[in-house]
Simulated assay, not measured.
Amino acid sequence: MSMNNKLDQLYRSVIMDHYKSPRNKGVLEDNNITVDMNNPTCGDVIHLTLQVEDGVVKDARFEGEGCSISMSSASMMTQLVKGKTVEEALHYADNFSKMMLGEDVDDDVDFDDAEALSGVAKFPARIKCATLAWKAMEQGVQQK
């Protein structure tokens, strides 16, 4: 098995792990930011709640329905932005969009598990699936 095939297989297993065992699934109560978005092209739906205090994303939760790409991306995104400043979260979102378009990302960005979604760039129809949660987060943190 070639190195590329091994990497693709590893990335698929990371994506399926987040899909089958999503992190931060649920809804935050009280006066938190709520964003609902959908991808009409394929039917992905996300309900994102964020707790932002003093310019920091204290917590992030999501619920939704969709393909493995969109739901695992939401899981990965919520893990990445928790504890980040709004500016850092937006920086991650901007770089995630670049990664989805096959562009170079900034050296200071460590996507952790979300790196597994880099292969989506080869499938333009799936880019909206991968970026849905990130677009919801961008919209949400800009409300605060």
Score class of each variant (00 low, 15 high):
1 M>G: 13
1 M>N: 06
2 S>N: 14
2 S>T: 12
2 S>P: 12
3 M>W: 15
6 K>E: 13
6 K>I: 14
7 L>D: 01
7 L>F: 05
9 Q>I: 11
10 L>Q: 04
12 R>C: 07
13 S>A: 09
14 V>T: 08
20 K>F: 08
20 K>D: 14
21 S>E: 13
21 S>G: 01
22 P>Y: 14
23 R>K: 15
24 N>W: 08
24 N>M: 05
24 N>E: 01
26 G>M: 09
26 G>I: 10
26 G>W: 12
27 V>E: 13
28 L>E: 01
29 E>N: 11
30 D>T: 06
32 N>T: 15
34 T>P: 03
34 T>S: 12
35 V>L: 03
38 N>C: 05
39 N>W: 00
39 N>E: 10
39 N>P: 06
39 N>D: 12
40 P>E: 08
42 C>E: 02
44 D>C: 03
45 V>H: 10
45 V>D: 03
45 V>I: 09
46 I>Q: 02
46 I>T: 00
46 I>G: 00
46 I>N: 02
47 H>W: 05
48 L>K: 02
49 T>C: 03
49 T>R: 13
52 V>H: 11
54 D>C: 07
54 D>K: 15
56 V>T: 14
58 K>M: 07
59 D>R: 11
59 D>Y: 12
60 A>Q: 08
62 F>K: 04
63 E>K: 13
63 E>L: 10
64 G>R: 06
66 G>P: 09
67 C>R: 06
69 I>M: 07
69 I>E: 04
70 S>M: 05
70 S>K: 06
71 M>D: 01
71 M>I: 01
72 S>A: 12
74 A>R: 09
75 S>I: 03
75 S>Q: 10
77 M>A: 15
78 T>A: 01
79 Q>N: 13
80 L>N: 04
80 L>P: 02
81 V>E: 02
81 V>Y: 11
81 V>I: 15
83 G>I: 04
85 T>R: 06
85 T>F: 04
88 E>C: 07
89 A>I: 05
90 L>Q: 11
92 Y>D: 00
93 A>V: 12
93 A>F: 00
93 A>D: 01
94 D>C: 00
95 N>P: 04
95 N>E: 02
96 F>P: 03
97 S>T: 07
98 K>H: 09
98 K>W: 12
98 K>I: 06
99 M>L: 12
100 M>F: 11
100 M>P: 03
101 L>N: 14
103 E>H: 12
105 V>H: 09
105 V>N: 07
106 D>F: 11
106 D>P: 08
108 D>Q: 07
108 D>L: 02
110 D>N: 12
113 D>V: 05
113 D>A: 11
114 A>H: 00
114 A>M: 15
115 E>H: 08
115 E>I: 09
115 E>N: 08
117 L>S: 11
118 S>K: 15
118 S>A: 13
118 S>L: 04
119 G>P: 08
119 G>R: 12
120 V>N: 08
121 A>M: 14
122 K>F: 15
122 K>S: 09
125 A>E: 07
125 A>I: 06
126 R>H: 05
126 R>D: 10
128 K>F: 04
128 K>M: 05
129 C>A: 03
133 A>W: 06
133 A>Q: 05
134 W>H: 13
135 K>M: 12
135 K>C: 01
135 K>E: 15
135 K>R: 05
138 E>L: 01
138 E>R: 13
141 V>Q: 04
141 V>S: 05
142 Q>D: 02
142 Q>V: 10
144 K>Y: 15
144 K>T: 11
